[in-house]
Design a protein around this nucleic acid. Structure first.
Length: 506
DNA sequence: AACGTTTCTTGCTAATGGTA
DNA sequence: TACCATTAGCAAGAAACGTT
């Protein structure tokens, strides 16, 4: 650019850009000003006691005891603990660990109020606004009563057990006895599990105490106290179903298009054992270790904080045969180009891409539904909020008005990207062929243009409104192999000429 | 487990970008 | 100019994440 235009275009662009940012700044200044104005007038608009003037809700009286149902039980203690926290911070500041302890037990100090005038003012203000009588911790449920009842029923059902899936974020409902069998099965494996005669928490704690004694010189009294003196709770053993590893479930998923699947006790379902508890015997020790090890992580030679940190590691000169291995090189190149020295050094053609990060299991699972061996099929995504599901035509093929049968080249759903789609009028079955990057975005705009004639820019919108009574169906049938727009448009053109849909422009 | 905070996703609208 | 696709910006809600 510099060579050809002696920098004039660049200057012009800079000018435009500056004007643009200037406008943005003025805009935000105006907004800030109006906000301040509103805030200045707050008191005269609403007065000093805006909230209190609203009469508090009458509380129900419990007939059996005559006690008032205290629905605001939480408010007072919560606000008091907050005040305590604030006062503690003021009292101790950042000098909490004056003896150099990394961890310590809570002391339960309750600093007296009125040490700091401003802090007390702030606390009072907080109490007045957030803790007025009208604060009611009872939040109305947004579910209908019937659904609330059903959820409660499920929660209290003794015959089933509900667990999250080990991977993929699904929810699994199992028969309790089946779950129990699976857990016991796991525990019976003598290779990994051994039956104990009693609770080992005490012996673990005594081991920890012994360890502390051994390293007594390296720990402060508070640290020792933290590690030793706390209420130990035995960890829980439970299992999460590995539905992603079960062949039976996978097969079932492939032959099913609903949001949930029901399957009869799969024999190959394993569980992933978890032993966890918020205050197990070794929890405090682990916490201390974590604090100790964290700062050491950055001393590991391979530790890289972020991309800019990486740039700092790049040497000025490297031997000619140096190989640079990048993970996801496409996204990384612009970052490398931030560095002057790397800009010259890195040539795209010399890059060797490393293995991509493995997709997570949720992704794998979703894809498993549309395995390549199967006939490609269009399915709804099933997201209850998805606005495309209702318009989407599903199935392994679609017949156009002309009688031609089209079959999708890949399995797709509402979330599919880089596709050629066919929109159909539900009344007269006339077709329209278009291409889009994101199908749901395109559908949204189609819908909007049908709704609002003033922003229409396509005759098909008008047709769908008039003939289709505001509705249309959509069927993606060709998934591009690339995100590139140009081949996609070419493909679209090809299909338009091939099928000659009635609603495309002439 | 409960809670608070941050990030992501979606719907909606108005407008811009691009091409025959 | 007609036509078609994409995007910015906002609000709301959900999910993910982190802390206690």
């Amino acid at each position: 650019m510099k060579k050809r235009s002696s920098g004039k275009i660049q200057e012009k662009l800079l000018e435009l850009w500056q004007a643009d940012t200037q406008r943005e700044q003025e805009k935000s200044e105006r907004i800030l000003e109006s906000k301040n104005e509103w805030f200045d007038k707050y008191e005269e608009n609403y007065g000093n006691e805006p909230v209190k003037s609203i009469s508090p809700k009458k509380r129900k009286v419990d007939k059996s005891t005559g006690n008032k149902n205290n629905t605001r039980r939480q408010s007072f203690p919560r606000s008091r603990s907050r005040s305590r926290k604030l006062r503690l911070r003021e009292f101790f500041g950042n000098t909490n660990y004056e003896d150099g302890s990394l961890v310590r037990n809570k002391k339960g100090t309750n600093p007296q109020p009125n040490r700091d005038k401003h802090l007390e003012e702030y606390i009072n203000c907080l109490k007045q606004t957030a803790n007025t009588n009208i604060v009611d911790s009872h939040v109305k449920s947004n579910l209908p009563k019937s659904q609330q009842k059903t959820i409660k029923k499920l929660q209290n059902d003794e015959s089933i057990i509900i667990k999250e899936a080990d991977k993929g974020g699904g929810i699994v409902i199992m028969d309790k006895d089946h779950y129990k069998d699976m857990v016991l099965n796991q525990l019976e494996d003598g290779l990994f599990y051994q039956k104990l005669n009693g609770n080992r928490d005490k012996s673990t704690m005594s081991k920890i105490r012994k360890l502390i004694k051994e390293y007594s010189d390296n720990l402060t009294d508070k640290e020792k106290d933290y590690l030793k003196n706390f209420e130990v709770k035995t960890s829980n053993f439970y299992g999460l179903p590995k539905i992603h590893k079960s062949k039976e479930i996978q097969d079932h998923v492939e032959n099913c298009d609903s949001m949930y699947i029901k399957i009869n006790r799969p024999t190959d379902l394993k569980i992933r054992p978890i032993i966890a508890g918020p205050s197990c015997s070794t929890q405090r020790l682990s916490n201390l270790l974590d604090i100790l090890l964290k700062p050491l992580c950055i001393k590991v030679p391979s530790f890289v904080r972020d991309d800019m940190d990486f740039l700092n590691y790049i040497p000025d000169r490297v031997p000619l045969d140096t190989i640079l291995i990048l993970n996801s090189a496409k996204g990384f190149l612009p970052i490398l180009h931030k560095s002057e020295k790397m800009k010259d050094l890195v040539d795209k053609s010399q890059l060797i891409g490393s293995r991509r990060q493995a997709p997570n299991l949720k992704k794998l699972l979703t894809r498993a539904q549309f395995s390549t061996q199967k006939v490609a099929e269009i399915q709804k995504c099933g997201d209850p909020r998805c606005g495309t599901c209702e318009m989407l035509e599903v199935g392994q093929s679609k017949t156009l008005k002309s009688g031609t049968v089209i079959k999708p080249n890949k399995s797709m759903n509402c979330k599919s990207e880089n596709v050629i789609y066919c929109a159909t009028c539900p009344t007269c079955n006339k077709n329209y062929i278009g291409q889009t990057n994101r199908l749901i975005d395109r559908v949204r705009v189609h819908k909007q243009q049908i709704k609002d004639p003033s922003i229409r820019n396509s005759p098909c919108s008008e047709h769908f409104d008039r003939c289709g009574k505001g509705k249309f169906k959509i069927y993606p049938f060709f998934k591009m192999w690339t995100e590139d727009k140009i081949p996609r448009e070419a493909k679209e053109q090809y299909f338009i000429e091939l099928y000659k849909p009635a609603l495309n422009r002439k």
